[in-house]
Amino acid sequence: MFHAVVAVKQVPDTTNIRIDPDTGNLVREGVPAIMNPYDAHALAAAVEWKRRLNGRVTVISMGPPSFTTTIREAIEMGADRGILISDRKLAGADTLATSYVLAEVIRAIHNEDPIDLLLFGKQAIDGDTAQVGPGVGVRLDMPVVTYAVGIRAIDLDDDTVVVERRTERWTEIIETPLPALLTCEKDIAEIPFAPLPDLIKSLRYEPEIWTIEGPVAFEQDMIGVRGSPTIVYQMGTPPLPEAGEVINTRETSIDAAVTFVFQKAEAAGVLGTILGGEK
């Protein structure tokens, strides 16, 4: 039976982010937390294939207890099982430590219930790093296909998957043996409106909480701050560039404003470029 595991992360909805003008710090209060959008689409793809192949979907997430809402949301979207890996000692993890924990957890799940497909989001919108997926693939020695925009076929007899991968220049159609790890773009699947019974199931669902006490034994040096080679050394707000001159058409004429711009361009040595690129 088909088994997919999807890694989901909870992120602040960055479209709603506010910065405290005095401290320059992020105001987390009142910023809604959402499931990382790419992960949601990855999950939708997993559920689509689970329905087609009559299988199961497990979601995993590493984070604080508040991430249970995201796991419940995953159940609402059709996942069958949700595991939250949550422990104080895991906090402060960078992508390397995160990929270690997720890889160990996936190994444990795999031993008990073999996995065919691992789905990750293309990137998490809070950090935009896009590193955790490939990192987990390397640790598990699994083939990785990033920027997946579609799954064309899954063959459980042959153990292969055919994936569409979009790069800047073209789309590649890639065949990869299973188990494989994909990191997904939003195009991978549409997010459907969950049926009411699934919502009700999710509201009653209690996610499994795994800690460093078990069931997986983590190496202390590999997790949390200790397992993270990178540290944030400084934080600041972006520097303000120097503003140029502004002319208001309501105070002069439009033609005068245009002339002014051309004068400035000439002074900056880019007039030739403006006039069609001649040198």
């Binding site: 409106f193 969950a194 049926p195 009411l196 019974p197 919502l199 009700i200 509201l203």
Partner: peptide
């Protein structure tokens, strides 16, 4: 509490007695 779900209509018996609601979700 069932959030993210809007009631759009009622389920009624022939005599008009209300016996439930219809929400905007599939199988709702």
């Amino acid at each position: 509490l069932i959030p993210k779900t809007a009631v759009v209509d009622f389920i009624r018996e022939e005599n008009g007695q209300v016996i439930g609601v219809l929400t905007d979700r599939p199988q709702g």
